[in-house]
């Protein structure tokens, strides 16, 4: 599907005539980030790939509509949804009470848990606010991990990156001591021939999170219900598991431990 990149160029040209999105009944515009492997990323051949993408396409197939994908900056992805640049946000976004004030979420389609990865040289046994005092911790700006770092790790230096991949580069160069992120994203990165780093500590969830969901504008309750229905169907008929097995050998829908149970008083 080299067409993804081409499409964005063509779309850009089409948008000259302001034709970018006169809503059509049979097309759903899906927005994602495209920089969050293994969930959504852009491959060497320029196509959008990953678990999120496959799930989205399966849902669209189930709904008998066409998915039209586009990529967006993570930091502005909720405003982009709310200002109508696309209709469904499918980007492994954790469902949190704060975000629910801005958008409506689908049922969770998996649990994305956080975990620390540390430089091997540090030889860390565990990752707690005490053991990480004075260290440099990084994650992507605007994600749930940045909330955890700000709230539970006041004695560490915190660096926030526009893209997760940039935090990984800084781990590899040793500017960061640890990175806190989705354990799936971390595993994908570390399995890719990177030998600087290792997992430390347990994985956990931000309190009040109930998994990763697709987001909608609040007024699009109709669309959300239809997507929920399609999601339930593909879970039931085994399509979901087929896709999941392509990326993960284990179930990713179980609920893990919350951060306050781990680091709270």
């Amino acid at each position: 599907m080299i067409s993804f990149m081409k499409k964005s160029t063509v779309m850009a040209a089409a948008a000259l005539a302001l034709g970018a999105g006169l809503a059509q009944a049979e097309t759903i515009r899906v927005g994602t980030e495209g920089a969050y492997a293994p969930f959504n990323s852009v491959s060497e051949s320029g196509e959008l790939v990953g678990f999120d993408i496959d799930i989205g396409n399966a849902i669209c197939a189930e709904m008998q509509v066409t998915c039209e994908w586009s990529t967006h900056e993570w930091g502005g992805i909720i405003p982009a949804l709310n200002s109508g640049k696309f209709d469904v946000l499918l980007a492994s976004m954790a469902i949190t009470p704060e975000r629910m004030e801005k958008v409506a979420f689908s049922d969770p389609y998996y649990f994305n848990t956080m975990r620390f990865a540390a430089l091997k040289d540090l030889g860390l046994e565990d990752a707690t606010p005490e053991t990480l005092e004075g260290m440099v911790l990084g994650t992507q700006a605007g994600g749930v991990a940045s909330k955890v770092l700000n709230q539970y790790f006041p004695d560490s230096e915190i660096k926030l990156y526009p893209k997760l991949g940039e935090a990984f580069l800084d781990m590899e160069s040793g500017r960061l001591d640890l990175v806190l992120e989705s354990k799936f994203a971390l595993a994908d990165w570390m399995n890719d021939g990177v030998d600087c780093c290792e997992f430390v500590g347990q994985d956990f969830l931000l309190d009040g999170t109930i998994g990763a969901g697709m987001a909608f504008r609040k007024e699009d309750a109709d669309l959300r219900d239809r997507v929920n229905e399609a999601l339930a169907t593909i879970i039931e008929n085994g399509t979901y598991d087929e896709i999941r097995q392509k990326y993960f050998e284990f179930d990713i829908r179980g609920k893990p431990i919350a951060v306050s149970e781990l680091f709270g008083d």
């Binding site: 930091g75 405003p79 660096k159």
Partner: peptide, 22 residues
């Protein structure tokens, strides 16, 4: 701000990510 320095723009981007307020 794009390389993680919290200058005016960096702070603005951070506060924006907290509040999502344009």
């Amino acid at each position: 701000a794009i390389i993680t320095v919290f200058d005016l723009m960096g702070q603005a981007r951070y506060i924006f990510s907290e509040t999502l307020d344009l």
